[in-house]
Computed example of a mutant assay.
Amino acid sequence: MAGKSGAPWWAHLMLYTGGLTLVVAGGTAAVTQYGLNAANSAVPEEDILGEHQAEVDVDNLEGPLNILVLGVDKQGATTRSDTMIIVHVNEELTEASMISLPRDLWVEIPDCGPTMNSPCEFKINHAASISDDWEVTRPNVVETIFDLTGVDFHLGATVDFNGFLDLVDLVGEIELCPWHEIQSIHGEKRVFPEGCAYYDKDESLDLIRQRYGWKLDSDWAEGRGGDYGRQAMQQQAIRSLITELKADGYHKDPAKLTEILEGFGGSLTIDKPNELSITDLVVNLRDLDPDAITSIQVPSTPERIQWDDDPLDIVRIHEGEEQAAADALWEALKNDTLDQWIAANPGWVKSETEATETPTGEEATTPAGGTD
């Protein structure tokens, strides 16, 4: 296809959650044919979107593009999705926004599995846990997200975040900045102090998996309690890894690029038109700035309900202002009017450059007893 000229050879399509996003990181080295071949063959393809894949003009790629990114957890033969993100790229392919769907978001699910009647209303991550067979759960997740948003997607991707963080080994350590002390609930029960420090792969993965520790009243008041806090730490990890890779020259050395592609390809799959190559996609997205990605919180707040006579913590899009803002958000994704939506709804928006600062957002009410 005819792409924009003069592009550097870089760019990565990756996920993060709370979580994974579209990230482009660049340099100035020319693309070698070896690099092109390596890029085009490094990322496996799979049918992620099914009937909810929108048409793409591969001969004249332009926006807007809506990209569905699913963070997956692979354990043996079982694959489940624990992170769901919508990335929106504007018509000029110069600006990107990311909408993370909270894993506890209360939604309608078409297939609720053998233990519940279908359809049902439950947490959105339940759509990904109805079966150990990814071929069963994947279309259920996509259909659930479509039923919520009404959005068809031009591209899809899945990322195994554990596999992605193997790339930390290439740089040794990445910087993470928890905004208060966190006691790990996993394995070695590490304690992560408040403030910025460098962590190796195992430590980084431990920290970004935490969500129960973000339970203080201040966490919820600042819009990053529970799973929102986990998402914020995952965002930090992606940005910090890109920063370290660039500092070590991986964006300028084709030989080093091969290391990234080999590591990255093992944790990423993509759903795209057959005629659209990875390098075509990279070239056309070259103007995206990874430091200028806008992060949007789905208009919603947490609450505690009774479920089978037990308390259950959920996140709900409440009737009234939240529902109106959410409905307008889905329409903005389809109509490429997200800039107008952002201007009208600043309380649900934050800049990725403020990831370690207090995010904006409507003040959340802490569920009794915490979030989980």
Rank of each mutant, 00 (worst) to 15 (best):
Tyr34Met: 07
Leu36Glu: 15
Ala38Arg: 08
Ala39Leu: 12
Ala39Ile: 01
Val43Pro: 01
Leu49Gly: 03
Gly63Leu: 08
Ile67Ala: 06
Gly71Cys: 11
Asp73Leu: 02
Lys74Phe: 02
His88Asn: 04
Asn90Gly: 05
Glu92Val: 00
Thr94Ala: 13
Ile109Leu: 09
Pro114Lys: 15
Met116Leu: 13
Asp133Gly: 08
Arg138Gln: 11
Glu143Val: 00
Ile145Glu: 04
Phe146Gly: 03
Thr149Val: 05
Leu165Ile: 08
Gly172His: 05
Gly187Ala: 13
Gly195Met: 11
Tyr198Pro: 01
Asp206Glu: 10
Trp214Ser: 13
Lys215Ala: 09
Ser218Met: 06
Trp220Met: 12
Gly223Val: 07
Arg230Gln: 14
Arg230Glu: 14
Arg230Phe: 09
Ile238Asn: 13
Ile238Asp: 08
Lys246Ile: 13
Lys252Phe: 00
Pro254Thr: 07
Ala255His: 00
Lys256Trp: 06
Ile260Asp: 02
Asn274Gln: 15
Asn274Val: 14
Leu276Lys: 09
Asp280Leu: 03
Asn284Pro: 05
Asp287Tyr: 15
Ile293Ala: 09
Gln306Arg: 06
Trp307Val: 01
Leu312Glu: 14
Ile317Thr: 13
Gln323Ile: 10
Ala324Arg: 13
Asp327Lys: 10
Ala344Gln: 11
Ser351Asn: 08
Glu352Ala: 05
Thr358Lys: 15
Pro359Thr: 12
Thr360Cys: 04
Thr365Leu: 07
Gly370Met: 07
Gly370His: 11
